[in-house]
Amino acid sequence: MAKAQYIAFYITVCCIAFIVSKIVVSVLLYKRWKRKHLIYEEDGFSGGKMVMFKSAMMQSLKSDELFKKTLKLSYKDIIGSGGYGTVYKLMLNESTAFAVKRLNRGTAERDRGFERELEAMGDIKHRNILTLHGYCTTPQYNLLIYELMPNGSLDTFLHGRSVETKLLDWPSRYKIALGAARGISYLHHDCIPHIIHRDIKSSNILLDQNMEAQVSDFGLATLMEPDKTHVSTLVAGTFGYLAPEYFDTGKATVKGDVYSFGVVLLELLTGRKPTDEEFFKEGTKLVTWVKAVVEHKWEEYVLDSSLKCSPADEINGVFRIAFLCLEPEPSKRPTMADVVKMLEQARSERVVEEY
């Protein structure tokens, strides 16, 4: 009996020591990350706190310059708005500008959206994911400070006023599709824990000065451990882009993002929004419509009119990739890593057909 008690005591002590060591290591790693990434952190601004992350752009800023500029933002500086909040253009000088997303506090859901976005974006560095430069919290509102994308969103180019002055040619659309796919693939496969975006759509794909795609708006993002297959959640996202299984199971998976990306591919190919009744024939499910287009080779009849002289083999290949992404059964959809590979080799239809 005494020996058994000694063994139990020994195991307990070892477990406690292991847990304590993990906590200590976590604290040390966090402090190391903080020293590496933060160049400025200040409490006391209007009862709140401002944090800026280390980057070449932020190095030359004075400690309180950015915050003082945010206090002067007005309706004249608004460049976007929606359920996620209001986005302002913040000019520090002639060569330095930021996009500032303001989220008014007051509801638990708004605060959770801010926390999700901050948690998902805080340590991500990828050429196809919008860079978060810092944030500010106050009792009245939260601010997220992003890199400014001079060419706005893909939605604006395809459906907004800018389409009147500058059309997207096929090489640009292909480049945007591949860049967005690489960004989403990074979230799904290279981040630990994995990140499910849950709101992939054309308005959340922003374009930099080189028309390079950057995935943005992580207010609905969900983190998922590598050994998990899904995360139970409320149905959230944008109608027309949501995967059908969300409504049946209420579970978010990376394959839901794949479905949404398939819808974005169709937008790039057709120039139409997924809510366009004329585009998606009434009473016809999306996947049935796409299947008919692919099987009967109707691509040229539904293609955006500005792409009529584009290479048919590449366009038909991307239609087939979209069809794979839009499979009703999630397990039959490719992963985003597979989608990237297929898009990279879109000039070879054989790659898609052999998948």
Rank of each mutant, 00 (worst) to 15 (best):
V290K: 14
V235E: 03
P193V: 08
A2K: 14
G106V: 11
Q209R: 15
R110K: 08
F9G: 10
T233C: 11
S203H: 03
V287P: 08
L130Q: 08
F98H: 08
V318D: 05
I315P: 09
S305L: 15
S306D: 08
E353K: 15
K68M: 09
H194F: 02
S63A: 12
Q209C: 02
M52R: 03
P334R: 05
D190T: 06
Y259K: 04
I23R: 13
L268D: 02
W170D: 15
F157E: 05
L154K: 05
A99P: 00
E212N: 14
F98I: 00
L29R: 08
F18Q: 00
L265K: 09
F18C: 06
L326A: 15
R347K: 05
Y186E: 08
L66H: 03
R182V: 06
I196M: 15
G179A: 10
F323E: 13
Y355A: 07
L326Y: 12
I79T: 03
V290G: 08
I79Y: 09
L66N: 03
T96N: 10
M211P: 04
R173M: 08
A120D: 06
T270R: 02
E295P: 04
Y186G: 14
Q5M: 10
L103K: 01
E267F: 09
W289M: 07
D155V: 00
D248S: 11
D77C: 09
E295H: 12
Y301W: 05
I23N: 10
D43T: 06
E117P: 01
L178P: 13
E245L: 02
Y10D: 04
Y301H: 03
S310G: 15
R333F: 06
L168D: 14
M149G: 05
S202H: 11
D217I: 05
A221V: 10
L148N: 04
V87W: 13
V302A: 03
T253S: 14
H188Y: 06
C14A: 11
T131M: 01
L29Q: 11
A108P: 01
K201L: 14
D208T: 08
E349V: 11
S260M: 03
L324T: 08
E65A: 12
L90W: 05
I129F: 04
D338Q: 15
R161G: 11
V294Y: 13
I205M: 14
H230S: 10
A322E: 12
G83S: 07
D169C: 15
G113L: 12
K101N: 03
K54F: 01
M50R: 00
V287D: 14
G85W: 11
R127L: 08
N93L: 13
S185I: 11
T137P: 00
D257K: 07
R127W: 03
V294A: 15
K22L: 06
E349S: 15
A213Q: 13
L168Y: 11
L154A: 05
I196P: 10
G283D: 07
N142Q: 01
G237V: 00
I321C: 04
F280N: 11
D111H: 10
F218P: 00
F45V: 10
L167S: 15
K22R: 14
D257T: 02
L143A: 01
S305G: 12
E212V: 13
S203F: 10
K332N: 07
L103W: 14
F279H: 07
K68I: 06
V318P: 06
Y301Q: 12
F45C: 07
M57Y: 02
G256K: 01
T156W: 02
I315F: 07
I16T: 03
I195T: 09
S81K: 11
